[in-house]
Design a protein around this nucleic acid. Structure first.
Lengths: 196, 196
DNA sequence: CCGTATATTGAACATATATTCATTGAATAT
DNA sequence: ATATTCAATGAATATATGTTCAATATACGG
């Protein structure tokens, strides 16, 4: 039987899991602390044993996301295109087994964009900015003919916005994930790839 | 000087405009009726002269969106690919001049996905489903070699999710729109286009 | 002008919900 | 066994916010 310490940790994880789901499905303000409590099978009051406030609970989630969704700096790859391919492959296959990854992707976007999220928490989410990082990579790769022509920032923006859009839709369409009707990585790579 | 009737209509439009902006930026629940009032330079109470409730104001916006964002049934086109090209071209160029189109796109997605939006309003937003419609078009066009192979629904889903993602990002990045760093329509068409 | 209708305000009211807290019960240590 | 610590509850409290309303200002027709 689990020790007290373990029980507590499990409970904490359960709260985080349910809170993530709800924040994504309903947004920050519309998710009531009582909703989370009910989803985690506990009383409203008990929530405050585990987290100081609704805001702090949200912040914990965002910090987790900020650590997890940063672009890996040293993903091994032969050419810059393969870097993006590798990232998407890893992302999709991992998310398929761990649905919370979809949710986390959405949560981070929400936190970045939506006003009405406390400023300090927004800033944490803002630090994760794939577009800027990738733009440089694309610019370099264009000279070698890997990427199509055009403004590198616009290309990077288009690519990541698309990925974002897909993650968002998948987050609310678990049926698609289960039936395996996921986008083919190549389809998305073609947004930036040079086809001549 | 404008007649009273005109004044009233202008005010109504102003409320709708500001409400759209705020609902998109902050979400439904986080947008307070007082915020909208302030943005439209009027007292909280006066809002209720123009709209019965926050919910009804939201519904009016969703109805506007449902009429505007439906796929045109009879856009003239030579081949199915040109249909998508034409749609995106029209969408981007129109939205560039009318920024509220970006916002409306986001609002509709929010209404469709987010729980905590009153059911009847959700349903209105749900009727606008590009994915299902386009999937048929894609399936037909695949046989003629216009579109790449793969599950037509997954292709349609990927394409529209990408468009959605881009519209969402542009909605919160007006700077990109002004500087004209918009995605090239071809980049997105390449998601579904057959390149052999 | 004057009276009526309409626009507008700000405060009052009702409700919902985040947070606190006194109390209970269970697990662990002594 | 008993004491002590901590998990857990649910009701009480404080606060925020949607909505109503009485009072006031402004525009319009006669």
């Amino acid at each position: 039987m689990p020790t007290r310490e373990e029980q507590k940790e499990q409970r904490r994880q359960l709260i985080l899991e349910k809170a993530l789901e709800l924040f994504v499905k309903k947004g920050y303000a519309e998710t009531k602390i009582g909703d989370i409590a009910k989803a985690a099978h506990m009383s409203t009051g008990l929530m405050f044993h585990y987290f100081d406030s609704k805001e702090q609970l949200y912040e914990v989630l965002i910090r987790m996301g900020a650590e997890g969704t940063n672009l890996p700096q040293k993903l091994p790859y032969d050419n810059p295109l393969a870097y993006f391919e590798g990232f998407l492959n890893t992302l999709f296959s991992y998310a398929k087994e761990n649905l919370w990854v979809f949710h986390m992707f959405v949560l981070m976007a929400q936190a970045r964009q939506s006003e009405g999220i406390p400023t300090q928490i927004r800033e944490i989410a803002m630090r994760v900015d794939q577009v800027e990082q990738s733009a440089k990579l694309i610019e370099a790769g264009q000279k070698q003919g890997y990427f199509r022509g055009g403004d590198p920032y616009a290309l990077s923006f288009t690519f990541w916005s698309s990925v974002q859009g897909i993650m968002e839709q998948l987050a609310v369409s678990p049926a698609l994930v289960e039936t395996g009707k996921l986008p083919d990585v190549d389809w998305l790579i073609d947004i930036i790839k040079n086809k001549t």
